[in-house]
Every structure is written in structure tokens, then in C-alpha cells.
Design a protein around this nucleic acid. Structure first.
Lengths: 201, 201, 201, 201
DNA sequence: CACTAATCGAGACGGTACGTCAAGTCTTCCT
DNA sequence: AGGAAGACTTGACGTACCGTCTCGATTAGTG
């Protein structure tokens, strides 16, 4: 066994965990990730520092869980991408919604913090991807597969790769703020990319 | 005058600046951005702390300048994207080279550090984009415009948007390490995206 | 009732008490008073922390009881100072024994700890004096009184004061380690002091 | 070299040192040694914690120096024990003064703290004895030697031992508070002990 | 002999202080 | 005047214990 002692999770205080999630998200939103301290989270949550150190290995881990918890509660039911038969319309709908989400201050703060830390912290990134990002990307895979079955997407296309044509550009603009992230942009990306995936005449 | 004192840049020590760049890049490469300290850079550069604080406002700014300096020396001549007449081949060439660069440890360390900090620090991001990223993206704009002229890319396509179909996915995989970043991946992205930009039959 | 709850001492675990005494003395001997913690005592004794807090108000109290228990077992029969008729020889015998005891590591550790804490903690000092020190000093009073009766000590001497001529110097050397504590020293103290108490010719 | 880095004492801030001495003595006087924390001293002195850790290895060391500094300023001129020719009167005078000092709250607090820590910390004790206690005891040696020359004290008496007949009992009562420490007590000790040192008829 | 109440080992909790590290400012001495 | 050096105040780090507070699991004496 590598660790000296594993705490008994059945004894864990649910109250404290909630308070820590709330405090962490609030502080990151207010002051940014770098200025958020474990001491600050503990103080705001009305909790001893040790209670944080007992259950999480790092500030990043706290925030990831808090964000996961937030995302989980937000998306009760893990909504699939709609399938109206019109792939382009469906993708535009979803991507516009994503644009709105990324532009909303409540999400932006913690999400950026997590993304930034993930860029530089492979362990966190792995969890971030596994728990949050990849499940969302799989929604695209399923929707695109359905389209493939009905002839909207060319057979032979590697869907896990193709979906990045949609999500990659959006993420890029959001992360580095190169240019404004708008509905029009989302529409353009869908239009340009989708035609590339269409069956060749 | 708002600042207490503006240092006289004509008296600045070139030796120290170089030493600071070198030390900063070396430390970020060895230990990562978070573990790189101003004190450490000063010590490694054989320089007083004040010499750093006199000329740069933050650790991120030092690193950005050091990286800019590195990139400048690396690309003497700002190589344009080649134009052999075969857009697909030209893009694959460039994107494969980009993949190799992103996968090389020497670049990866400092670049990640800068990207991560930019995600969370809009001022730095603005400089990063203006000085480093956008000039590179404009290379794509020019190559795509040439293709538009010769009929390889549909008229009416917004090129500044379209180029992100290529760069966005690559950057995304690199930053978050979702999946391996390979030549095959670069090729697939080019193939899928380019067809979407092609003139409609 | 002022206290929240008085524990029922009839249900008290004798096993635990012994284990706590042993652990406390061992730890103080090994690491010193300051580095001995209640948590450490509990762990070493295989006992819950609460079991200590239930029965003792402080670390010092635990140690005092442990030491008292030790002293009690050591001196089954509260040996009086011998009375061979030769006061000087009797006192030298006892003081030499005291020197040996103070120099023995087993006693030294806990006794120092207790003394140090008593210096700074009047409540503990009161108990320490009442339970341990004063009873021992009364042995001197009784032996000196016997000597007074047989003319070895001047009438009018305040014995409770006089005995400190013997014990004070020894204790002083022991506590502050000013100079080595030897049999010769004990002998000298007896010789010098005793003549001062003798009847005046 | 064993230590990582030795600070440059010529650059040391005199202001900080004074403030630390004052704060340390004040806090020990007000709250006792155990409740005095390095953090508290730093805060009260308006000084960073690191400034304390840079120059002293421990709380005890700070206090010792502070106390030494206090004692030094208090006794400008290292007053010798007076020699009126009447040894008994001279000793009573000095011992009564000592009694008053030990009973004065300003001295009592810090001195107790130091004594208590010395009991349990041999390194500190060594310094305490060397710098503070032994010089004072040597005053007794000198006065007793003068008495020996004029026939007030028996030839052959080991003075360094003999003086403990006076100081030992006083210290003992003070440290453990066995009984009240009064002028009468001091007088009695002098009377009893001095006769023991007198030339034998 | 079962019941039931208190003690037990265990350890999570909100806290305080520890001793360390680095931040950014200031001062001194050198070139 | 800039630079090397490094002491200063500040504040967060992660750790160790504090004393309090639940938790089942014994473990007695009582009904």
C-alpha cells in the first residue's frame, strides 16, 4: 500500500462536501483559479483545511469534482443530441447551445480554470476528459452514426475523428479568445464541415 | 505619470535579458510552469530578482517574451505555407509538421505553459494571440485565398473561419490530450474538412 | 451540576488505564514531554483518544498520575529515612540514593517533564507537591526531629526550612544541570549544612 | 557546511530585533510560555514569521535572547555583592533582593518560562546557565572568598559548592512553589547555612 | 438471561500553529 | 543608474495535534 492511511468514506460529512463544492465554485467564479486558495475555500465553506486535504489531493481535484457535480445536476438525463432527421439543423442547435453555455459567466469561470489546469496537469486532464468531455463527445458519435445509417454521412468516415471538426474550432476560440464566439460562427462551422462529410456525388 | 519610475531601457543589460530568457525556458521545460518561480529564474540566470521585476510585470510575461524570442529565432523568414498547386498535399505537409512540433518536448513544455496561462489570463492571451498565433493563422488565410483563386476552394467561404477546421481539432487534441496526435489524424482532418470547402458540383 | 456528564468510574477499563500509563511514560522517556502528544499516547496504548479525554483533563495530568503510579509501585512501604543514631551518615546515605535516582534515565525523563510543566503550571505543581514531593520532604522533617531530640540538631531550628538546605541544592543541580550531580557533592552538602544546624558550643 | 545558507547579519534589521524581544517578553508575561506562539510574536512585533525563523532556531531561543537583553540592560555594571565586612548581613541583603525579584510578576513570567524549558532542553539550559546563571553565582564565590580571607568562612570549604546552600533552597521554592518565598525564609537560610561554613571552634 | 446504558476503539470534524516557500518591495554595496 | 545580493512583510502551503463529536461493538450490572 502506498498511502499511509485511507480515510473511511462512510463516515464522511455530506454537509462539508457540499459546502466545499459551493465555496470552490464561488471563489473560482469570483477571483479566478490562481487566486483561489485551499485556505480560502476552507474558510468560506466553514470547514477545517484538513477536511479538504483528507479527501482531495489538490485544489484542481476539488474543483474538478465540484464542477462534475455541478454538471451532473445541470444535466439530469444526459440529453442526447436530438434527431429530427435534419443533421445540419440538429448540429446547429447543439452547437449554438454550447456557444451560449461557454459564453455564460457561471460556466466560463470554473470551466476555464479546469481546462487551464488540465493543459498543464496530465492526471487532471485524464479525469477531466474521461468524466466530462468524452461522454459529451460520444453524443456526437451516436448522432453521426445515425446519420450514417440514413445516408447523411459518408460511409467510411471515422466518426470519432470527424466530430472534432465541430467541437475543435469552438473550443479553440473559447480557450484562447482569438475571435468572438457567436451563433453565426457555430452555423458556419457546421455548414463547412458537414459538407465535407457528406456522401460524394 | 502613473508609474513610480520608468526604467531607462537604453542602459539595459543585454546579457541579463538573454540569461533570463534561457533560464526561464529551461526551468519551464524541466519542472513545468507552476513550479517555475521568479526566484528560481533569477538564481539560475545569475541575476537579482529586481532585474526581473524591473522589466517584466509577471512570470507569464517573462515566459511569453522568452518564447517569442525563441520562436523568432527558430523561424527566420516566417516561412509561408508552400503552394505546389495541390492544396490537400500542402496542408497535410504543414499539419504533419505542426503535429511533430507539438509532440516535441522542447516546444511542448513552454508552449503548454503559455497556453494554460492564456486560458485564464486574458491580457496574456491577447498578446499571445497577436504576436504568435494570429500571424501563423494568416499563413493559412493566404494559402486558402490562393486556392480560392484557382478554384480549389468554394467562393463565399469565410477563410478566417474555415482555417479553424484544420487548426482547431489539432490544438484541441494537443491541449487536452484526448487522443494521440498523429500524422494519420492530421491527414484525416485535412481530407474531411477540405471536401467541405470544395466547390459544390 | 456544572460538568456536562460525570463518567461512571466503576465501569472504567483497568486495562486501558494501565496501557495509558505505560504508553505515556514510555513516550515521555523516548521523545520528551513536548513531543509527547495525547494522540500518540492513545495510539501507542491502543486506545481511543476519548478514553483519555474522559478521565484526564490534560497531558500533564495523565503523566502525573502515571508517574505517581510508578513511584507508588517502586516504593512499596514508603521507607523512612534510617536512624542509626549517626545523622550525618544517614543523610549521606539517603542523598546519595537520591543522586543515583536522579541520574537514572528511567526516572529522569518523566520526572523532568513533570517538574518542567509544574514550573509553569501552578495547578499541576500543587498536585505534584502534595502527592509526591511533600510526603518525601516530611521524611526529612521526622528524621531531623529525632535528631533534635537526641541533641544532634539545635533546638529552635525550623526543620521544614532546614531540610531544604539538603534537598534544594541537589534539586537545583539536577534541574538546570549546572554541574555534575555526584556522591561527593551530596556528601559535601551534608557536611556543610549539617554543621550549621548543630548546637552551638 | 551543514546549514543551507547563513543569513548576512550585517544587514539585519535592528528595529525588528528589538520589536521581537519586546513582543516575546510581553506575550510570555501575559499568557505564559506555552500559549506564546511564534506567529503571535511575529504579529505583535509587526514582523514576518520568516524574520524570526531566519535568526532564531526556536521559540525558546528567542525568549532566551530577549531575556538576556533585558537582564543586560537592567544590570548595567554587574553589581557585585556588597562587602561591609558583615557576611551575614550582606548575604541577607542580596537574598532578600532576589526574593523580591522572583516575586515580581515582570520577572517571574519570562524567567519561569526559560527555567521550565531549560529543565527539558539541555542546549537551552547550557546557554541559560553560561550566560545568565553562572555569572551571578560567581558573585557569591567572590564574596565568600573575601570572607574566607578575613576568617569568616572556614578554609577548605569548596565555595562553588557552598554557595548552593543559599541559592538552591530559594530557587527550589520559587520553581515549585512549595511554600511562600519570604524575607524571613531568606534570613533563615542564611543563618542556618552560614554557621555551617564558619570556622570550627 | 436478556436488556440497556455506558465505555470502548476508531477516526472525522472545525480549528490553531507549525515551519517552509515564494511573492513583490526595499536597501546596500558594486560596477 | 543599473545590477547582484539578499533582508524584509505578507500570505499560502501542507502537516501535526488539539479537543469535540459521532459511530458501531463490547461489556457490565439490572430487571
Amino acid at each position: 500500500m502506498s498511502k499511509t492511511k485511507a480515510p473511511d468514506s462512510s463516515r464522511r460529512s455530506e454537509r462539508s462536501r457540499r459546502a466545499i463544492y459551493d465555496a470552490a465554485l464561488a471563489l473560482v467564479g469570483e477571483a479566478g483559479y490562481a487566486k483561489t486558495t485551499i485556505e480560502g475555500i476552507a474558510a468560506r465553506a466553514g470547514v477545517g483545511k484538513q477536511t479538504i486535504y483528507r479527501w482531495w489531493p489538490s485544489k484542481a481535484a476539488v474543483l474538478l469534482e465540484a464542477f462534475l457535480d455541478l454538471a451532473e445536476r445541470a444535466s439530469e438525463g444526459e440529453s442526447e443530441i436530438p434527431d429530427t432527421g435534419d443533421l445540419e439543423a440538429d448540429l446547429k442547435l447543439v452547437l449554438r447551445a454550447t456557444v451560449d453555455e461557454l459564453n455564460s459567466p457561471a460556466y466560463d469561470g470554473p470551466a476555464r480554470a479546469l481546462a487551464a489546469e488540465s493543459v498543464v496537469n496530465p492526471e487532471l486532464a485524464a479525469q477531466f476528459v474521461e468524466k466530462l468531455l468524452e461522454p459529451q463527445l460520444q453524443l456526437y458519435v451516436r448522432r453521426l452514426r445515425a446519420a450514417q445509417d440514413t445516408g447523411g454521412v459518408r460511409v467510411g468516415i471515422e466518426l470519432r475523428t470527424a466530430l472534432e471538426l465541430f467541437t475543435g474550432p469552438l473550443t479553440h476560440r473559447w480557450l484562447l479568445r482569438t475571435l468572438p464566439l457567436t451563433h453565426d460562427y457555430a452555423d458556419a462551422i457546421v455548414e463547412y464541415a458537414l459538407y465535407g462529410l457528406a456522401p460524394r456525388s
